[in-house]
Amino acid sequence: MAAAHAAVDALPPARHHTAWWELIDDMARATDTIRSILDASSGQPEPNDARIREPQLWPYVLAWAERSFIISNLAEQHRPAAPPLSGLDQQRWTDRAHAALQRGDLDTIDVWYSGRNELITLAYLIEHEELTVLTLSGEVGSEQMRVLGHHATESEAERAAPPPVPMGVLRPGFAPFQHRPSPPQVPVAELIRRVDDAQHTGEVYGALLEAVEDSGPSRGLLPRVSELVDRAASFADALETRQGQRAAARLTVLARQLGVLAGEIESAAEDLGVGVLPPHRTPRPVFPETAPSARQAPTPAATPIAPLPGPARHR
């Protein structure tokens, strides 16, 4: 906990730091409660001990399982990063990156936020059939994009790049490990849960792709709905009535539109690219203090180091 606190204190001021501090304190309270439960039950004989202790421990252990990624990630923020390119060298490499992007020869590998709240991207630069791994700062393709470094391998680039801070979450109160029975007749609930639990665009892409998959035994939801509508059109047409024929015509058109929609969803999913939720989307504490915390957020710098990729939302 102390290492995580120290890591946050050492980072440049940012609006999500207060939430991180609250979460660290929250996990410390959970740890103290776990120890108290274990100490209180240490003198009880088994198996009564386990039956009494496990239900008491479960909420606190579950909270640690769901939020430990932030604590462990913050504790690793002391890793130094290589100094960025400077002057004409940086401008030259940045120009090459922009040119490669226009040609379609800049392939994103991974993306994260640094402790300076900069969006960091690793990407392959393809020139003359040779690959160079670039470390980029700023949204790819934007005017703020600049090359921090160029490397021969991904591992070398990862070691030299600014370390990532914890990724954000879509819904602060979401508990990914909480049991939620998903009725077999509504499989879309699991896909929705995966999006709620997602932090990386790849996870959302996978959920959308499963919804529109139209081959093999794992056909997606939308193709099955399209098949249902098409079958209903056949039934309506088989009624051999004008009303049935009108309904059959409408349902046939809708089935075709669902097919087009599936293609549009897949295309939109691909447009997500590679990205992570910004770190200010921090989980809410599970066990907040009864009184407001006296800790105050640091005063933000007058000039931000890098603009956030979306409109600011005050917590």
Rank of each mutant, 00 (worst) to 15 (best):
M1D: 12
H5G: 07
A7F: 07
L11G: 05
E22C: 06
D25Y: 02
D26E: 10
M27H: 06
R29H: 07
T33V: 07
I37E: 08
L38W: 00
L38N: 08
A40G: 08
S41I: 01
P45F: 03
E46P: 00
N48M: 09
A50V: 14
R51C: 07
E54H: 06
P55G: 13
L57Q: 12
W58P: 01
A63R: 13
A63P: 11
S72H: 11
E76N: 13
P80N: 06
P83F: 01
G87L: 09
Q91M: 05
D105C: 02
Y113T: 09
R116G: 15
R116L: 12
I126M: 07
E130L: 09
L131E: 15
E139C: 09
Q144E: 15
R146E: 14
A175R: 12
P176L: 13
F177M: 10
R180A: 14
P183V: 05
E190M: 03
D196H: 00
A198G: 05
Q199H: 05
G202P: 04
V212G: 09
R219F: 05
R224I: 13
V225R: 09
E227I: 06
D237T: 04
L239K: 11
R250D: 13
R250T: 02
T252D: 09
L254Q: 04
A255W: 00
L258Q: 00
G259H: 00
I265E: 11
I265G: 12
G275P: 12
R284I: 04
P285V: 01
V286F: 01
F287V: 06
E289R: 03
E289S: 14
P292T: 03
A294E: 12
R295F: 02
A301Y: 01
A302K: 05
T303H: 09
P307Y: 00
L308R: 05
R313V: 13
R315W: 02
